[in-house]
Structures are given as structure tokens and as C-alpha cells.
Amino acid sequence: MSGEEIKNIEDLIQLGEGKKIVNYKINRLTAPGENYGSLMLSVDITVKTATGNEEIHAVAKMVPPSEFIQEIFNTPVTFRNEIAFYKEILPILQDFQRQHGVKEVIDFVPKYYGSRRNLKGDEGKVDQDAVLLLENLKVANYTTFDRTQGFDLDAAKLIITDLAQFHAVPLALKLEKPDIFEKEIMPYLTHCPSYELRIQRWLKQVSDLIDEIEELKPLKERILKAHEHTSSEIRESFATISHNDCWVNNYMLRLENGKPVKNIMVDYQVYNYGSPATDIVFFLFSSVKDDVLEKHYDDLIKLYYQTFIAVLEELQCVTTPFTFEALKDEINHEGKLQFVHVTFMLYPIFIPKTEVEDISKLNLKSMEQHKVTDAHKRKFLFVVNEFIKRNWI
């Protein structure tokens, strides 16, 4: 074994009778800046079977070594919740689809191999030995896009379609089987870690950034005031599971002839019970190319809505409350709350790769002191103008 260590790895995977792990190699998977909330390792496992050896290429998601990151992400809760998403929630949603005769159930999630909260193997506290073992998507020819560039139209369509299904299936379950939703899913839909303390520390940076962009100087007070809007009460009837972290690095796509044909959505650390519009707004304005949004924003919203309604109808839901106008109202409501989320996320998106600290060394000071690039300034200007145009700030 080389690289990092995973204790008792043999206990993590249920291989079946007659199969045995005979070798495994572990190495660091992600470069600094690709993942902030977890330590990611590649795990290549050789399994002996009755007919020969087979290989399992996996990714081990580990508790971050930095106490600073653990505090930001509320790791004891969010790591538990992410395990529950793969182990409990996803199978419930897929079974619910199958009960309605759906053949193409949710499949934009990595394959789950096994997990634990601690070495005791119980349902106790998450500790440093917690592991979530998933399919290694890079080996399966999935790739991430450049976080500073964002997605083109084809990729945006693929992702927005999957997002619509991701939101609609649990919503349908809530409507048809509220007892199951309340008992089996709601306990894990805790609110995500609060950004408010970090936002307060970043306000001076935002103020300084505005001062460097001539077009925004007259809007300084308006922009800073918009940072006061960070949360609201849950609004029915659209409320469902919200991923809550839909940015470039949390999507991996498989390409054929340069075109995206399949999307996998990862990183279910901070999902919660909230508006689907949270994910729509955050994804579009943090992770889609500016020129695509300028030309195709309305098209992407319509595509989302068409898919959302089609999924609800497939699951035999009454769709009367979910009109297109109601969705637009929901987006307009959440848009006013997502400005902070989007502009906050521009810092890790545009941090120069040469300045990104290893996850073990990350702290608040190191995250605040990187250079603001010209690309960051252009994106910030674009976001401000787009949010003003929609009367969201």
C-alpha cells in the first residue's frame, strides 16, 4: 500500500461469497482547489474471485484533516448526511420511481461501494476514521470542466435536466408518501453550514473589489446591502431536496467527440430541504459561461420546467400548483437570496491555482489573502449586472 492510509478497508466493501481483497493501492486524488470540504483519495482494489482477479477503482472521501474546514462544513453532521444520501435516501427515491414503472431512474450519482462513520461500525459519531467509498469517475472517463470557464450550452442543458429530476422525484415522494418522506428523509435534511460569519469577514474584500471596478462604484451601497439577504423561511409547495452546492467542480461529464453525453453530480455534503430555485440560480450564475446565459437563460429555465413537470406526471402527481409562472416567482424569490452565495463562491472559483493551499493547511487567513484576478472581476461585474436586470438586488 502506498500514499495515504485507510484502516480496515476490507470491512468497507460487501464483496459477496467467494471474493477476497488481495491488494490495494491508495493515493491522493484531487489537487488543491478541486475539493474544499473533504480529503479525496483514489483506491484501486484487486479482488480475487473464483474465476480470476477483478479490479475495483474507487474514491475514498475522508474527513478533512483541517479543523478549520471541519468547522466550516460542520463535518460531524454533513459527513453523516452524505453517507445517508447514498446508503438510504437514493435507494428510497429509486424504488419509488420503479414502483411507478419508471425504467430510467436517477442515475446521475456515483456508484456507492460502502461507508462508515467510525471504526466501531456503529451509528455513532463521525470521527477521523470515517470513510465514504464511491466509484472513481475519472477511471470511467468522466472529467471536470475548467472552473474559471464554466459550462457551455450542451453541458448546461444536460445538467439542468438532471437537476429537474433530482428535485422532482423527492417532491413527488413527499406529496404521495409524506410519512416516508418525514421519517426516512427529513432527519438528514438539516440546514447547511451557515455562511454568515464568513460573509461578514469577506465584506471588506467585496468593498475593495467594487472599488477596483469603475462601473460598480456608483452601485457600492446597493451591492453591499444585498449581502444582508442570506436566508428565508422554507416556502411550500416547491420545497424539496436541494443540493445546495451546484458549482462546476461538483459535476463530472463524459464526452463523446467533444460533446457531453452523460453527467454525474457529486458532493452531497450540504443538501437540505429547500427551494429547487436555490440550485437553479446558483448553478446558472456560478457555473455557466456568461455568453450562454445572455443568450439562453430563458431556454434553460423552460427546459428545467418541462423536465420537472414531465417527471411529476410520470410519478402521477397533480401538477396544478406547479405552473411555469409559479416557478418563475420561486426563482425571483430565491434569486434575491442567492446573490451572496454566488459572489462568495467566485473567490474559490477564481483563486489562481498557484495560490491554492493544500486542504491540510487551509485556514481563514489563507483563503482571504489570494489575488483577485481580472477574470474574477469580469465575472463579478457580470453577476451584479444580471442580478440588477432581474431586480434581485
Rank of each mutant, 00 (worst) to 15 (best):
F322V: 00
L39E: 15
H167K: 05
E233G: 08
K25A: 11
S66F: 10
Q369L: 12
I393A: 02
C246A: 08
N23E: 13
G121D: 06
L132D: 14
L337Y: 02
F339G: 08
M1E: 12
S2H: 04
L362M: 15
N272T: 09
L284H: 05
L153T: 02
K220N: 04
I21R: 12
D374K: 09
K157W: 02
T46H: 02
N250K: 03
L132F: 07
A50R: 10
R28E: 14
Y305A: 04
E135W: 08
V43A: 08
F85W: 14
H341S: 10
Q165W: 02
K259A: 06
I185D: 06
I160L: 06
D329L: 01
L163P: 03
K48F: 09
T75V: 14
F151T: 05
K204F: 08
H376K: 08
A172I: 03
F238K: 01
E233H: 11
D291E: 15
P352E: 09
Q306P: 00
V102E: 13
E17K: 14
K295T: 11
W392S: 01
H376N: 06
G335C: 02
V105Q: 03
C317P: 00
I210W: 01
L346S: 07
R235E: 10
E212T: 15
P91F: 13
V63T: 15
V281W: 03
H296G: 00
F151W: 05
I21Q: 10
S38T: 12
K389P: 07
L171I: 12
A31F: 06
V59Y: 05
D279C: 10
V384T: 13
K353G: 12
L381T: 14
I309F: 08
C246H: 01
K103Y: 10
F350H: 15
L158Q: 09
P218D: 11
E88Y: 02
L255S: 00
K61Q: 08
F285V: 04
E67T: 07
D211I: 00
S38E: 08
K295M: 13
N23V: 00
I159W: 11
K125I: 08
R98W: 02
G274Y: 07
V383A: 08
H191D: 15
V281L: 01
V206W: 02
P32G: 08
E54Q: 14
E67Q: 13
H370E: 01
I92Y: 03
Q205G: 14
